[in-house]
Design a protein around this nucleic acid. Structure first.
Lengths: 120, 120
DNA sequence: TTGACATATTGCTACGTGGCGATATAGTCA
DNA sequence: TGACTATATCGCCACGTAGCAATATGTCAA
């Protein structure tokens, strides 16, 4: 009930803010970056290596994550270290993963009578 | 720890699935629809009225939400009734709203010394 | 059947943005 | 100062999609 009320009461601009936040999380590259940062802070160059992505693009996506307040940056000489500043994102991903897992299991369970993979 | 591990272990295609789910939630119109459905099932026409949106667009967005497994549809004669089939989305929105609220409060708290709105 | 209605789909345009190469900026060292 | 390095930004192209008007589909009544 509580949450439902909250959702009901969101005005137009709040909705846009929420949509924007989801939009930031709706890019595989940005999710990859967050995933890489889940283990701890990393420099831009390390991220480029880990993701095998171009520096320009990694930097751009980091900028978007930073502007959204999801990561924080810290200069260290020539290098710039980024880290996740909003652990909430892991809860978000966890909820979504749970749903996708349930969907996948349901899809398997409704398969004809082909041999099904063992659970776990 | 638990969640971090989960995030770390997502492979490429799982990441795309997660990104797709966030993408579905990254549209103000679709969030409006979910918001309207939070109070209970509604017919397409009711949603058009509530959102003051064109029928074609509401129908399209409902199709996207349905394909993502977030809403379920049920025919009732000429009408089609939709309802939220994945309550998890309210948790997602709640988490995001919490973050946005904290950000907004932090922004206010760091304002020069202009008069600040009372808390609550 | 036919007509009337609610919803879904199609074809289209306009806009936002991910990724790229090239370049600018900032920091370090000599 | 100038050379060198790591990161950020710019201009661009290609692609996806929200919203629209028009049309198709499905359902009921007569």
């Amino acid at each position: 009930m509580e949450k439902v009320r909250e959702v009901e009461s969101l005005d137009q601009s709040a909705l846009q803010g929420v949509a924007r936040m989801f939009d930031v999380l709706a890019e595989p590259t940005r999710l990859q970056i967050l995933q890489a940062l889940a283990g701890g802070p990393k420099y831009v160059g390390e991220l480029c290596d880990t993701l095998s992505a171009k520096q320009a693009n990694v930097s751009k996506q980091l900028g978007i994550l930073h502007q959204a307040g999801l990561v924080s940056r810290e200069r260290d000489g020539l290098l710039v270290r980024y880290c996740v500043s909003e652990p909430m994102i892991f809860e978000l991903c966890s909820l979504v993963c749970g749903k996708l897992r349930r969907d996948a299991e349901a899809r398997i369970a409704s398969m004809p009578q082909a041999r099904r993979p063992r659970k776990r």
